[in-house]
Amino acid sequence: MVDSTSISQRINGAVRRFPPGLLYLVAPFPAVWWFYQGATGGLGPEPIKALEHLCGEFALQLLVVGLAVTPLREFTGLNLIRFRRAIGVIAFSYVFLHLCVWLVLDVQILGQIWADILKRPYITIGMVGFVTLLPLAVTSNNLSVRRLGPLRWRRLHRLVYGAVLLGGVHFLMVVKGWQLEPMIYLGVIVILLAARLARRRRNPAT
């Protein structure tokens, strides 16, 4: 235990030197690289679906990382809380990019887009997830925290729990048959959410 704590503290010390703003600077690189690859044949013969999937999966990964920040601090002492806002905002950007690739490059036809959103449960769920994230993205700034007050702001941002869950279900439903990868994502998401529930039971005040 002593060892792991000291490791966490060392990492915390190292990480403190990185300004969170740095994340925004590197965030566009995957998207630019994938788009370049897609345009030059590097994503295989069906680059649209590949790009769509890459953006969506990266967004889900970032959301999971964002969700892991608090349990990590609690169980290992590793403190990444300074980066959480940037992680969340970048995750939202990739969700938005995923949605844009689907709208503009993949489905293309407006009538079909509406039909898809209304008729196909996995798309409905994905859209609800996106809409849930919208107010969080809009209020991800200091001004909004001040205006809403920390309590209300924190309550609003609990919406992310629902959004991540919807994202995981969306991924599970989009694949055909029973595939392992989306089940792993959903499993991790459920564990991370359960960790919060357990903590709230122990300590209902927070």
Binding site: F35, G38, E46, I48, L51, L105, Q112, D116, R120, P121
Partner: peptide, 20 residues
């Protein structure tokens, strides 16, 4: 189909801007 509209299709190999 519950998952995909079958009204249109996209031919593989048309790149990033292939039309349906």
């Amino acid at each position: 189909h519950p998952r995909w509209s079958q009204a249109t299709e996209r031919k593989i190999g048309g790149g990033l801007f292939a039309r349906r």
